[in-house]
Amino acid sequence: MRHAERDVAKIAEVTFTSPDRVRDVIHNVNADGFASLYPKYNGGRPRTFTLPARREVKKIAKSRPVEHGLPFSTWSLVKPADFLVAEGVVDDIGFAAYDLRKDQLYGHIRKTKNRSNFLGFCRYLRSLHPTGTRIAIICDNYSPHLTTKRCQRVGTWATANNVEIAYTPTNSSWLNRIEAQFTALRYFALDGTDHPSHRAQGSMIRRYIIWRNKNAADKRLKALVSRANAA
Rank of each mutant, 00 (worst) to 15 (best):
W75R: 11
I165G: 03
Y187D: 04
K113T: 06
A216C: 07
N117H: 09
V22R: 04
K40P: 01
A136Q: 07
T133G: 02
K111S: 14
G33Y: 09
L175Y: 07
D91G: 06
L105D: 00
S173F: 01
T159W: 04
H145V: 09
F83V: 14
N28H: 10
H27G: 08
L125Q: 02
L119F: 03
Y106W: 14
K222W: 00
S226I: 04
A160P: 00
R115P: 00
Q104H: 09
L190A: 03
A228I: 06
A217H: 01
H145Q: 09
N213P: 05
R101A: 01
G94Q: 04
R54Q: 13
L185K: 09
I205Q: 00
S197H: 11
N114S: 05
R206Y: 07
F182Q: 05
V225D: 00
P39K: 14
P196D: 13
N30T: 07
I137C: 03
Y124Q: 12
C139Y: 01
A180R: 04
S172R: 14
N114Y: 14
I165C: 07
K102W: 00
A216R: 06
Y106R: 02
I137H: 03
I137N: 02
I178V: 14
G107M: 11
I93W: 07
V89C: 04
C151W: 14
P196S: 12
E164C: 06
I210K: 10
A216L: 01
T15R: 10
L146I: 11
L84H: 03
A230Y: 05
V29R: 10
Y208K: 06
S127Q: 14
A35I: 09
P169S: 11
G43S: 13
A86C: 09
K79L: 12
I210R: 14
F16W: 02
Q104M: 06
E164H: 12
I109A: 07
A4Q: 13
P65I: 13
L100G: 00
N42W: 07
K59C: 06
T193W: 02
A61T: 10
S36D: 14
C139E: 07
I135D: 00
S18T: 15
D24N: 15
L221F: 12
D194L: 14
H198Q: 12
H198V: 04
L105Q: 04
L84F: 02
I93S: 08
G33F: 13
I135E: 01
Q152Y: 00
T159V: 11
S76G: 11
N161T: 11
L51F: 08
I26G: 02
V8H: 03
T148P: 04
N114E: 09
N28Q: 15
D20I: 05
N161D: 06
L190V: 10
K59S: 15
G33K: 03
H198E: 12
A81H: 05
V90T: 15
E87V: 04
Q152W: 00
A228P: 03
V57T: 09
